[in-house]
Write a protein that binds this DNA or RNA. Structure first.
Length: 718
DNA sequence: CAGCCTCGAGTTCT
DNA sequence: CTCGAGGCTG
């Protein structure tokens, strides 16, 4: 069985299943270890022991609430860590059924089930729910008797938990004594005889970061037994399970209350502990009461109606997720009316009136199958970790860049390692860290090869540079391929239909050697290739033909001169007006171009000092590549009278009514500058759907943010 | 010379 | 989108 893929995806909250597996793993491992260490008579191969051990570690990582201090993984030098006192919950701490179905169906399933259970027909009114965030921390039961905190217990297996009162007392957000802050919010405006508050202990992201910085400092200073934490949840779990409350106190934890266990508001009441309807009419009442008694209640909890309300909440919080100061792994839907809750009751250990609707995990464990080295257009060698496929952040990830040798060595990723993978920012997978204690044996540390893996030319690292580069230049097939793809890309000559697969074949067969070869391609040479019949071949030729009419800026960019990107190419084109002027410009002259310094100037001059590059330009022109050349515009600025002159815009997110390129052109034609990063100089940020870090930054800097409607007004007005 | 503002380059998956 | 580094500005 595959050790790493089966988790989570199936039924993440079916804890009983997990507990069964944990128990049997622990029993087996203890038995094997006894045979091995005590009897000196191993009964299974080491590999089998390792396999079971890894599986146990993985489960414990995924379900830290089930971590048993007596687990074989917790032994330090053979002795088990001292246990916490176990306590039976007065009212079992239930788990929630989990919907992982994306988008709307999870919410719809739940609403449909509820309506059916309640016997509501299609014409009955919408059902009222409370939707809350599902915090990624540890569930806790905190018991108050006559208003005083007497015990705090972890969820454990739902029936028995561990007494961690000494640590919970150090969390300042949790009152040691109940106080009535706002009697109006209370259904019973007195201090209850018994109240068990349930909620989540978690660590805020900023606190988590600070903690890890402190831990790193300690380790650097040589402190023994200190470690950094892989994520806030594990850090919180570690803090809660500290034996020494002084250490727990240094680990800043936070708390949100969202439910109750045993409640006896008045001394003599012996109400059914699982029927709260006599005390709280609705779940909203319950939350308000907790707030009134001094507990932090998350402000994102909302009263919503029907499936649509749930769906909208799920979507809105999904957007908000990355900007929250803490981790969530989903949202929770609860039937608001407690009488109806009571009517629905429970199925085994799950309430039928509530469900968790998860988002795809942002972090997962997987193993490194290998480390490959890729060669980029400029010859840069990039190590890439090949991963055992893992579903994270909504997609299946198989590759993650390690950027360069230093980065790969700093993270110390090695073949066979178990690593944590995250989809950082919005898209790009990243190896967060290696779980060192899961490393098997001693695999070789990663080292950059001394020769290019594609063309075997020497790979060198320039003084003071982070990157190794293949010295093969265009002799190197990898660089040649990238050069063609760069030339053909949309922002350059825009040759549609000329993709990676095609270029691969054309370069490998030797059909494409230099850029002008593209304009000498014939139908016959194309049809011989794989997956290329007459129809597609003529499409390709038509695209190539179309690309011949272009602009100087696109052409310059397409040549792929180092340090000359889209913007610099535009600047050069504008300044010189013709390709001949650019080609013959001396370094001192190039320096007078806006935003061109010594590095860029030298790069341009050196490029055109190579006779073969001049030859390429001439041949391309001879092949019919053309653009309208304009008079040089040495000084640059001239459009001061344009309406948006001097303004700088940044575009982010997905726009529904414009393509980004079109919008950029429109704005530029009005005299504005469109930049890629937000700074104090930015006039306004144009934000579409799902805007990410740029929106956050603009908000921090207090920069004007325009939606699509406001943008429209701006464009029409001018 | 430091610090800010940009640009260039590389990267992943559907 | 992010990182690193080139170029400009105070």
């Amino acid at each position: 069985m595959d050790l790493f893929s089966s988790l989570k995806s199936d039924d993440p909250e079916d804890l009983s299943e997990v507990i069964r597996e944990l128990t049997s793993l622990k029993e087996l491992l203890n038995q094997y270890a006894y045979n091995y260490y005590v009897l000196d008579a191993p009964t299974v191969p080491d590999a089998e022991y390792d396999r079971l051990y890894k599986r146990l570690e993985l489960l414990e990582y995924e379900y830290p609430q089930l971590l048993d201090p007596n687990s074989p993984t917790q032994r330090v030098g053979g002795a088990a860590v001292e246990a916490f006192e176990s306590h039976r919950h007065a009212v079992p701490m239930l788990s929630l059924k989990t919907e992982t179905n994306s988008e709307s169906s999870g919410a719809e399933n739940f609403d449909t089930r509820i309506r059916k259970e309640l016997g509501l027909g299609p014409n009955a009114p919408l059902v009222e729910y409370i939707a809350e965030l599902k915090f990624d921390g540890l569930a806790m039961n905190i018991r108050y008797e006559d208003g005083k905190l007497v015990r705090a217990t972890t969820r454990g297996d739902g029936e028995f938990g561990e007494d961690v009162t000494h640590n919970i007392r150090t969390i300042s957000q949790i009152p040691l004594e109940l106080k009535i802050n706002d009697a109006k919010l209370l259904t019973h405006p007195v201090i209850p005889r018994v109240l068990e508050v349930r909620g989540e202990v978690y660590m805020r992201l900023d606190d988590f970061q600070k903690l890890n910085e402190r831990q790193r400092d300690k380790i650097l200073k040589g402190a023994k037994g200190e470690r950094t934490f892989v994520n806030p949840r594990n850090a919180a779990a570690g803090a809660v399970r500290q034996l020494d409350p002084r250490i727990a106190a240094e680990r800043p934890l936070s708390f949100f209350a969202y439910g109750v266990g045993e409640v006896r508001w008045i001394n003599d009441e012996q109400t059914n502990p699982q029927d709260l309807s006599s005390i709280f009419k609705t779940h909203k009442n319950l939350l308000d009461s907790l707030k009134a008694l001094g507990f932090p209640v998350d402000s994102h909890a909302e009263l919503v109606s029907g499936a649509q309300g749930l769906i909208s909440y799920h979507q809105r919080m999904g957007q908000l997720r990355k900007n929250l100061p803490f981790d969530i792994d989903g949202v929770v839907y609860k039937l608001n009316d407690t009488t109806l809750q009571q009517k629905l009751g429970f199925i085994t250990r799950e309430p039928k009136w509530a469900v968790a609707h998860k988002y795809p995990a942002q972090e997962e464990l997987t193993t490194v199958l290998g480390i490959e080295v890729q060669v980029g257009r400029t010859g840069k060698l990039t190590p890439v970790a090949k991963l055992s496929p893992v579903f994270v952040g909504g997609v299946t990830v198989t590759n993650a860049t390690l950027h360069n040798q230093d980065e790969a060595q700093r993270k110390d990723v090695r073949v066979g390692d178990t690593v944590i993978v995250r989809r950082a920012g919005d898209v790009i997978p990243e190896v967060v860290s290696v779980l060192l204690d899961k490393r098997v044996g001693t695999p070789e540390p990663f080292k950059m090869p001394s020769n290019c893996p594609v063309c075997a030319s020497l790979a060198v690292r320039e003084e003071g540079e982070a990157d190794f580069r293949c010295t093969g230049g265009l002799y190197c097939a990898a660089q040649r391929k990238q050069a063609f793809l760069h030339f053909a890309q949309r922002k350059a000559l825009n040759i549609e239909d000329l993709g990676e697969k095609l270029v691969d074949q054309l370069v490998d067969t030797g059909t494409l050697k230099t850029l002008p070869d593209m304009y000498r391609l014939g139908l016959t040479s194309l049809i011989t290739l794989e997956r290329m019949a007459e129809k597609s071949a003529s499409n390709v030729l038509a695209s190539i033909e179309r690309s011949k009419t272009t602009t100087l800026a696109r052409f310059l960019f397409g040549l792929g001169i180092r340090h000359v990107g889209e913007t610099t190419a535009k600047d050069l084109a504008k300044h010189y007006g013709s390709i001949d002027a650019v080609m013959s410009a001396e370094v001192e002259d190039l320096l007078s171009v806006k935003d061109v310094g010594p590095v860029v100037a030298n790069s341009v001059r050196t490029f055109f000092d190579q006779p073969h590059n001049v030859e390429v330009v001439n041949q391309l022109r001879a092949c019919g590549v053309s653009w309208s050349e304009s008079a040089p515009n040495g000084s640059g600025s001239s459009n001061l009278e344009l309406p948006l002159a001097g303004k700088t815009y940044v575009i982010t997110g997905t726009l529904s009514r414009y393509s980004r390129e079109d919008l950029k052109e429109q704005l530029e034609s009005l005299g504005a500058k469109v930049s890629s990063s937000v700074s104090a100089k930015t006039t306004a940020l144009i934000a579409g759907e799902a805007a990410g870090s740029k929106l956050t930054k603009a908000q921090e800097l207090g920069i004007l943010i325009l939606g699509e409607d406001e943008l429209e007004a701006l464009l029409n007005f001018n």
